[in-house]
Design a protein around this nucleic acid. Structure first.
Lengths: 228, 228
DNA sequence: CCAAAAGTGTTGACTGTACACCCATGT
DNA sequence: ACATGGGTGTACAGTCAACACTTTTGG
């Protein structure tokens, strides 16, 4: 239970909550766990927890991801601090929220038998979540859509080698609309963010697609990006 | 002194710090106070303080502005939560930072005789500030520059009636570069955000300028804005 | 009449967008 | 042979960016 006061100072509880996005079969999905304790016992919720002494909120977010869903080495970024006074029935508890991006390929092996039953759920049509987590999800989706338009965060949602069609589907899913294939390819290749991997994706009953890699796997912002 | 633990939970201290921007004589300025207590006693710092029970961080930010500098009814937006473990020598203390925008006209009367000597200081060439406040300032300037390009936050830096040249100077100061007068006017008027106030600014020894007002004084975002 | 800032349009370059067909493979 | 997605270019429209002179006032 959060400790609510001592002396003249008031220290609220501080939790982190993480919105983990992935894209699977053209669907944007979010990681949910089932709460094993009160409050909201049995409700679906974002993975989260109280921070520990000597730990930053970023570190806490990474710890929560690893402990609750076995997820490591993924893109994690601070989102917003939610602090409605009554957002937690136990008392005044801030949530420093984060969002994370994971390529769907890596996820299936990671989501093992965890106590809180982590699973990826379609971001459209989520059920009622614990606390103010639905609101956190809404906010994070907006941030992701904003960010993908002027940065290369798409790389965090893809395996190291991917086809241009796969890249385009990431954009279409996050932005929620179709993009013209020729225009997308022309613009993305001009940006110089990706280079050919010199291989092709074979084995499908169709013409093999060239594979590409991102030149940089760190986050980059740029002035002009995908306006389309 | 922040209370650092009780039982199995750890509750860090939680402060708010506010970066108040104004533009005066074509200079971007930031509100600083002088710390009257340790740590960093005597150092310039952003106005801030611990949050109180039953108060959101947004409310705390507004309270701090009012108490420390007499500033009320201004645009306030959450920026980021800074949480380096050693950012405060007293122990682990988070700073939920905010930024605020104030028209310079309103400020001179507000900054009265306060104990912490609030004053507006040019944002370029700030001295060493207490805690990690220099870093918070850097981050907030980036946010302001990003935001002014795709929203109408400029209205928060101007009095209710203003000339197009005054508006343009806000943009030039925040973005740190000159803008072409004809292109700026054409584009801004096409956006439909402002309308003529039907008056002129007289009394200067030059041709009187038409005064304008913002149509909406709430924050608006738009897809296309000032690319120039 | 002079100084100072206000106000005003056009043109060429660039970027965005719409659009349709042939190609390489697996079955 | 056919079904499937891969891959490619052009033309029109819209936006951006560069640029100089006349107007109105106060002193």
């Amino acid at each position: 239970m959060p400790n609510q006061s001592k002396g003249g100072f008031f220290n609220p509880g501080v939790t982190v909550d993480v919105v983990v996005f992935t894209i699977e079969n053209g669907l944007l999905k979010i990681l949910l766990v089932k709460r094993s304790d009160d409050p909201f016992k049995g409700f679906p919720a974002l993975p989260g927890g109280f921070i520990r002494r000597g730990e930053t909120t970023h570190e806490a977010a990474e710890r929560v991801l690893k402990d609750k869903a076995g997820i490591e080495n993924v893109y994690v970024e601070q989102l917003y601090t939610f602090d409605e006074v009554r957002r937690d029935p136990r008392g005044q508890v801030l949530s420093v929220s984060y969002f994370a991006l994971v390529p769907s390929e890596d996820l299936s092996i990671r989501l093992g038998r965890k106590t809180e039953h982590p699973e990826m759920v379609a971001a459209d049509g989520l059920p009622a979540l614990a606390f103010d987590h639905n609101r956190i999800v809404v906010y994070s989706r907006k941030r992701l859509a904003d960010k993908i338009r002027y940065s290369n965060v798409a790389y965090s949602l893809l395996p190291s080698e991917f086809t241009l069609t796969e890249l385009q589907k990431i954009y279409e899913t996050v932005l929620g609309r179709r993009i013209d294939k020729r225009n997308f390819r022309k613009k993305y290749l001009e940006l110089g963010l990706i280079k050919s991997a010199g291989k092709k994706r074979k084995g499908l009953r169709q013409r093999p697609a060239l594979l590409y890699r991102f030149v940089n796997s760190r986050m980059e912002e740029m002035d002009r990006f995908l306006k389309q």
